[in-house]
Design a protein around this nucleic acid. Structure first.
Length: 559
DNA sequence: GCCGTTTTCGGCCCGACTGTTTTCAGTCG
């Protein structure tokens, strides 16, 4: 309910921008959307008074939420939808193309979706419009390249998979998701569900009911398109072949090819039904059985990409990957002092419920002007933090801004008084590789910078990665004792796994952090852990898996 | 549309960059 309503409020805000309404009103709808999405309890349960206590929600928005709860739609939103040509909102998804120009393109060229937009640019039609030029065409083209409508982020995929499994599990002996989601790939193209059952027809029927559309339907395989537009595959199997099927449908294809080749070399046959010698089944019940029968250790799904894990498993050298419970603190979080939606105390209480040993509050620093941070506000937060009783050790930190020349906010004295400092790039994303590399290296060499936050600064579908010489960055991190963040936000997953492995080889340590701006986002940590597992990390590599004394030692950099 | 060292309406998140202008609009974080 919260995410649904938040999406409607966001849509309302976007549509008011397109119509050119009061920008403060728009901003308030955006704020209400963020608050609702980050609200810790289901807003469907709240009465009018409780709704209006959500920050940014007053009389009018509370009424709209109640209207949606009671009728399933919001009249004012429907009116706006009717007034604005379909497709204009889709066009505003393109980075570099905002609401005004999207509307202009629709009015003057009749462009109604991204495909038509791409065609119009190819035909050189945009450059002749008022306010457009060749550079605008190039900019929008780059935006189109980063916009990927085919894949979804991990949180969307996991929510969909979880709800499907919830419906099928009561009818199955076992039911789990496989495929790229089980491997924690960073974005997901379609969802694979595996169900072991004696009653395939019932499971298949329940699955089909969850689709907007049934694309394929047979005795063992059914494909639907969900209401969210995501494709989901169901494979129905006999319980006896669970392990073989789960392994097969988890992939990756490259991993499966490599493992099957091993089987063939031993005169065996491997399929989704089991490991066979001739017609004789050897094993099929569990994944462990199958790998063991091939003289390999079990390979954790995130490693199954045929990037060395098969050889490692044959040598018995699969690393003990870092696990979610190994993480004993979050080192990058925000509050409503800057752009978070929950108070300091709310965030801390929620973190306590996760059982952390320590927790760092790292609100934005002054050079990100829109956040309106001041020395006084930061010191007041520190005082408030020291007054709070907590089962966790509370660390006062900040997220600094790495300026184009590599410098950060505040002077040395002020920086030294924090327990921990994350530093991130928030502007000037288009520097060339030399400048950008120098910028990051300078930040690493700053004696107070402990963690480089979301190093690529990419956002799926919204922003491409910065151009950096990663080899040089990794060496600088290792040399200076600066950790790289694995930002667990499903929109970022930054660093990605390929870079993680290279950085680890260079001797870098990591911090898996949520960058949470609300209470529910604290639970995003699992996506960061999955990404770290894809990068073959162990708890030893991750500074926030360490006990506090060891972490504190790491936070004091050597000159 | 919301909010208030609040009672009735003014202020709310600011500044830089870009490309297209000829003084600025659009977009972004």
């Amino acid at each position: 309910m919260n995410e649904t309503v938040a999406a409607l409020l966001r849509e309302y805000a976007e549509l008011t921008v397109i119509t050119g309404g009061d920008p403060f009103r728009t901003r308030n709808y955006e704020r209400a959307a963020r608050s609702v999405a980050g609200h810790p309890v289901d807003i469907g349960e709240l009465d009018d008074g409780a709704l209006q206590r959500i920050p940014g929600v007053g009389k009018s928005i509370a009424a709209k939420i109640a209207e949606f709860r009671d009728t399933g739609s919001i009249g004012a939103l429907e009116e706006l939808r009717a007034r604005i040509p379909a497709g204009v909102r889709e066009l505003t998804r393109v980075p570099g193309l905002g609401p005004r120009r999207a509307l202009q393109l629709n009015r003057e060229l009749g462009i109604g979706d991204v495909t038509q937009l791409a065609e119009a640019i190819k035909a050189g039609k945009l450059r002749d419009l008022d306010g457009f030029g060749v550079k605008s065409e190039e900019r929008i083209l780059r935006g189109l390249a980063v916009l990927n409508t085919e894949r979804v982020t991990l949180d969307v995929a996991l929510d969909t998979a979880t709800s499907l499994i919830g419906a099928l599990a009561p009818l199955s002996e076992r039911c789990e998701y496989a495929g790229s989601l089980r491997r924690w790939r960073e974005t997901i193209g379609d969802i694979d569900i595996l169900a072991a059952t004696r009653d395939p027809a019932a499971v298949t029927a329940a699955f089909a009911e969850h689709g907007d559309e049934v694309l394929v339907s047979g005795p063992t395989k059914t494909t639907i398109r969900t209401a969210g537009g995501l494709r989901a595959d169901l494979r129905v199997i006999e319980p006896e072949v669970w392990g073989a099927a789960l392994r097969y449908f988890t992939g990756s294809q490259a991993h499966n090819v490599a493992v099957r080749a091993l089987a063939v070399k031993r005169g065996l046959k491997l399929s989704e039904y089991g490991l066979f010698r001739g017609q004789d089944l050897i094993v099929s019940r569990t994944e462990e059985d199958i790998y063991a029968a091939l003289d390999m250790g079990w390979v954790p799904p995130p490693m199954r990409e045929d990037t060395g894990e098969v050889e490692a498993a044959l040598r018995g050298e699969i690393p003990a990957l870092v696990q979610l419970p190994d993480i004993v603190g979050d080192l990058h979080t925000h509050t409503d002092l800057t752009d978070g939606v929950a108070s300091l105390e709310e965030m801390i209480r929620a973190a306590e419920r996760r059982g952390y040993q320590y927790y760092a509050v790292t609100d934005h620093a002054p050079n990100l002007v829109m956040q309106r941070m001041t020395d006084e506000k930061m010191l007041a937060q520190r005082a408030e933090l020291s007054r709070l009783d907590s089962s966790m050790e509370l660390l006062h930190g900040t997220e600094l801004n790495i300026a184009p020349d590599g410098s950060v906010d505040w002077n040395a004295d002020f920086l030294a008084a924090f327990d921990i400092r994350v530093a991130s790039v928030h502007s000037h994303f288009d520097q060339d590789r030399r400048e950008m590399t120098r910028r990051f290296v300078a930040a690493c060499e700053n004696p107070y910078v402990n963690i480089i936050g979301h190093p690529l600064t990419r956002k799926f579908g919204r922003r491409y990665a910065v151009d950096v010489d990663f080899g040089e960055l990794f060496r600088a991190c290792a040399r200076t004792g600066t950790a790289l963040e694995i930002n667990a936000s499903p929109a970022r997953l930054d660093l990605p796994s390929g870079h993680i492995r290279a950085a680890k080889d260079a001797g870098v340590k990591f911090a898996i952090d949520t960058d949470a701006h609300s209470v529910p986002q604290l639970a995003n940590l699992k996506y960061g852990v999955g990404t770290a597992q894809r990068g073959w990390l162990t708890a030893e590599d991750v500074v926030n898996a360490w006990p506090l004394p060891r972490l504190r030692e790491f936070l004091v950099k050597r000159a």
